[in-house]
């Protein structure tokens, strides 16, 4: 065995041992997505789920215990799709934010992103529950890419640890955080002053927040 071969074997052994010492627990957040009971605004909305949003992974390495790797992307998109498809008469998926030269054939564009994700275990808080929070930012653009509004949304979820494994409890808390975030988006959209003004100016709603039939 020459020096090169020996160093290769040693490297393989080192990384195998390292992997064994720092076990990562993946959680691909899953759950059902109910249809919202909300008004449909009669507009065609473009929605952008960029690559960062579609492949978002949250990793946490505690001082002791298992590493956590939470993958909320699939449920995020499922929930937001369900909410947007009920909120707007037509929804069209776009690849990127439009520009003046690359105008989108929609009335407005929503670009959601995840700013923060975090969770706390009973060990962190001394409480009897796991909790998760997700902070989205929703940017809304005109069809030519001018920013109409940008607002943060925080979703929070909690799951009592009783009878659940840490993995299941964290999945449940993350699922509830995404659900809470989606519920807040559905309710708060029309309450954002800049969006409300844009909807009134466009003749989609009146000043009493009632839909104008079109």
């Amino acid at each position: 065995m020459n020096v090169k071969q020996a160093s290769t074997y040693l490297s393989i052994m080192f990384f195998t041992l390292l992997g064994a010492c720092s076990k990562s627990v993946p959680i691909s957040v899953s759950g059902t997505t109910p249809e919202p009971l909300i008004n449909t605004i009669p507009i065609t909305m473009g929605v952008i789920y960029d690559d960062e949003f579609k492949s978002y992974v949250f990793k946490q390495t505690p001082e002791e215990g298992s590493k956590w790797r939470i993958e909320p992307a699939d449920l995020n998109i499922e929930f937001l799709d369900r909410v947007f498809n009920t909120m707007f008469r037509h929804v069209s998926t776009l690849d990127e934010v439009p520009t003046k030269t690359n105008r989108a054939n929609v009335q407005a564009v929503l670009h959601p992103s995840i700013e923060e994700f975090g969770f706390l275990t009973p060990k962190d808080t001394g409480l009897n529950s796991y909790s998760a929070s997700i902070k989205y930012r929703i940017d809304m653009f005109t069809p030519t890419g001018e920013l109409i509004a940008s607002w943060p949304i925080i979703g929070y979820g909690k799951s009592i640890k009783k009878g659940l494994s840490a993995k299941k409890a964290l999945n449940e808390a993350s699922r509830l955080a995404i659900r809470d975030g989606a519920a807040t988006i559905a309710i708060d959209f029309q309450k954002q002053t800049l969006i409300r003004n844009w909807l009134i100016d466009g003749g989609f709603i009146n000043t009493r927040n009632e839909l104008v039939s079109q």
């Binding site: 009971l37 659900r179 809470d180 989606a182 519920a183 807040t184």
Partner: peptide, 8 residues
Amino acid sequence: FPWFEPRL
């Protein structure tokens, strides 16, 4: 949904 969610 979403009217009987915890905060609503």
